[in-house]
Amino acid sequence: MLSRQDVTDILAEPKIAETKIIDLANIKTILNLYSENDDKLKFKLQITQSDKIQFKLTNHHHFNTVGLLRLDYKGRHKNPENITENVPDILHKYVGKIFDINEPHIHIYFEGYDIKWAMPLDEYGFPVKKISSVSDIEDAVKSFQKEINLKSELSFSLPLFR
């Protein structure tokens, strides 16, 4: 189990991607990442779109098998009903909150909960508030890249039709 400080340190660790191209025609892209300072530290960035809901996007950052941060546009989610000392005060008002598909949110790892807690993007301060175009998807991925300290310059292969 990771502490909050562990997660903060892991997110701050500079990362490099093995592959730097994201094909937005694919429903799912998984990029293998490794630490810029220690190539034994492995991470993943998973970018998932929906083939049924236009501009539904999930960006998921893993360390080993542990999800650390997940960004959801047009995804549904319900926060836990209980609070422990590991849940910061800023999330207490979201206990049991149900996020509908029109509420973009970000999931954050907390000890004992993994990434079951989420908060609205507005309150988190994430710059891309909604997605309504392929350009917005690129912006969201690039902004998420900064959140996880991915140093590689990613390029996007755009779909012919969307």
Rank of each mutant, 00 (worst) to 15 (best):
M119W: 10
H92L: 08
L68D: 11
N32L: 09
K97R: 14
R4D: 14
E13Q: 08
H61A: 12
K129M: 09
D136Q: 03
P14N: 10
N86Y: 12
I47W: 07
D100P: 10
D51I: 06
F99T: 05
S152M: 03
H107S: 08
Q145W: 07
I90T: 04
K44R: 13
L31S: 03
F126Y: 13
V66L: 11
F110V: 04
S143L: 04
I53G: 00
N26F: 13
S157M: 02
M1Y: 00
I90Q: 09
I108S: 10
L69Y: 12
I30P: 06
Y113L: 00
K130V: 00
F43P: 08
L2H: 10
S143N: 15
Y109T: 04
L11E: 06
V128I: 15
I137G: 01
G96P: 09
R70Y: 11
K129Y: 10
F110K: 08
L150H: 03
D122C: 00
Y73K: 00
N64F: 04
N59I: 06
D114W: 02
D51F: 02
M119Y: 07
K56H: 04
E81H: 08
T58D: 15
D39I: 12
K97I: 10
I115F: 01
N64T: 01
I108F: 05
M1I: 01
M1L: 01
K142D: 11
L154S: 06
Y124M: 01
K151M: 00
V95Y: 00
K93F: 01
K130W: 05
H92W: 15
D39P: 14
S135C: 02
I106K: 04
F144Q: 03
P88M: 03
M119C: 05
F55Y: 15
N26K: 15
L69T: 12
S155P: 02
S50D: 08
G125F: 01
Q145N: 06
S133Q: 11
S133D: 11
F110A: 02
I98M: 14
Y34M: 09
I16G: 01
Y73D: 02
D89E: 13
K15N: 09
E36N: 08
E111P: 02
I16T: 09
S50C: 03
F99D: 04
H62M: 13
F55A: 00
P159D: 12
N59V: 06
N64H: 08
L160D: 14
L31W: 03
L160Y: 02
I101E: 15
D51C: 00
I30L: 10
T58Q: 14
I101A: 07
K151W: 01
L154A: 07
L24P: 10
P120A: 10
Y94K: 02
K20D: 14
N149C: 01
Y34E: 13
I148V: 14
N82I: 03
E36R: 00
V134D: 12
P159N: 13
I115M: 03
S132L: 02
G75N: 09
L68G: 08
S135F: 04
E111Q: 15
H105A: 12
K44V: 01
E18R: 09
G67A: 15
D38K: 09
L68V: 11
L11M: 11
T8H: 14
P159F: 08
T58R: 15
E153N: 14
E147A: 05
T48F: 12
K146A: 01
N79D: 05
H92D: 05
P88S: 07
S155L: 02
D39V: 11
V66S: 12
P120T: 12
T19I: 09
I10P: 03
K78Q: 14
T8S: 13
Y34A: 00
N149K: 12
